[in-house]
């Protein structure tokens, strides 16, 4: 096929047709390659609380500079010690905190073993230690006023200062940054799915803010069991600590 005038017009014509056909085909292909909407329990939750998925991202945002234990305690490195506290999710899960049973200075903690407990309405829920080591300081302010944990869980509501002999190795077992945030999102999603399934669903107040005492919303009779399940202390008994 030579490049005479007619041939060039013919070829240019095909090129234009191709370019024009490409545009709608690309739109169709885009739609083809788009994942189908997931048909999971999310929809059921959505019926109860419109737009929860959008709001999810804003609740329980974890500070990026902290290490997080799956039992909802956090750890912050300060010099050669580690400061430990309870995260925002855990304090909202439990709701009202009557007392905190914190270990005395000098107590030896083991990572992922019960470190302290929260007492509410006569029931007690243990919390696992994010790191092991010797307790060198107890936050007496938070111990005497548990409200500090509720108002500032990552600040003045810190609970223990621990000197850990294997700090680097222990911190490696904890989550941080984006990984921790995704874990938190998954936990939150799980709680909402559970709320929708039990039709108690009171994890939100109007407007979508998580209510205080979500565990009680889920199970008023056995809220401590629910809390223990999320704090991973279902099979743990905690005898240590002293009432503050």
């Amino acid at each position: 096929m030579g490049h005479d005038l007619l041939t060039i017009y013919f070829l240019k014509g095909i090129e234009y047709l191709l370019a024009v056909a490409y545009l709608p085909l690309f739109v169709l292909f885009w739609r083809f390659a788009t994942p189908k909407a997931p048909a999971v329990a999310v929809a059921a939750v959505g019926d109860k609380a419109p737009g929860w998925a959008d709001q999810l991202a804003d609740y329980f945002r974890l500070p990026g500079d902290l290490f997080h234990h799956p039992g909802h305690a956090w750890a912050r490195v300060e010099g050669d010690t580690v400061v430990v506290g309870l995260n925002d999710f855990a304090q909202r899960l439990v709701g009202r905190i009557d007392r905190l049973r914190l270990p005395a200075a000098g107590t030896e903690l083991a990572q992922s073993r019960p470190a302290f407990s929260i007492v509410s309405g006569g029931r007690s829920v243990a919390v696992l230690a994010p790191v092991g080591g010797t307790v060198v300081e107890v936050n007496h302010e938070a111990a005497s006023d548990p409200g500090a944990v509720k108002q500032s869980p990552y600040g003045r509501g810190w609970l223990l200062r621990v000197r850990s002999p294997q700090m680097a190795a222990q911190l490696k077992a904890l989550m941080r940054g984006e990984l921790a945030q995704r874990w938190m999102d998954t936990v939150w999603e799980q709680l909402n799915t559970e709320a929708a399934a039990t039709e108690l669903g009171a994890v939100y107040q109007d407007g979508g803010t998580p209510v205080d005492g979500m565990a009680q919303g889920l199970s008023p009779e056995h809220w401590d069991r629910v809390a223990r399940r999320y704090l991973l202390t279902e099979d743990e008994s905690f005898e240590g600590g002293s009432d503050a």
Binding site: M1, L11, E15, L18, Y22, F26, F29
Partner: peptide
């Protein structure tokens, strides 16, 4: 994978244009 699908789809049409431009269907 989705990004790859879209880029390859666009690339396929570009290559078709190259074929037409050469005019050598023979």
């Amino acid at each position: 994978a989705r990004a790859g699908a879209l880029v390859l789809f666009a690339y396929f049409f570009l290559r078709l244009q190259g074929l037409v431009d050469s005019g050598r269907f023979d």
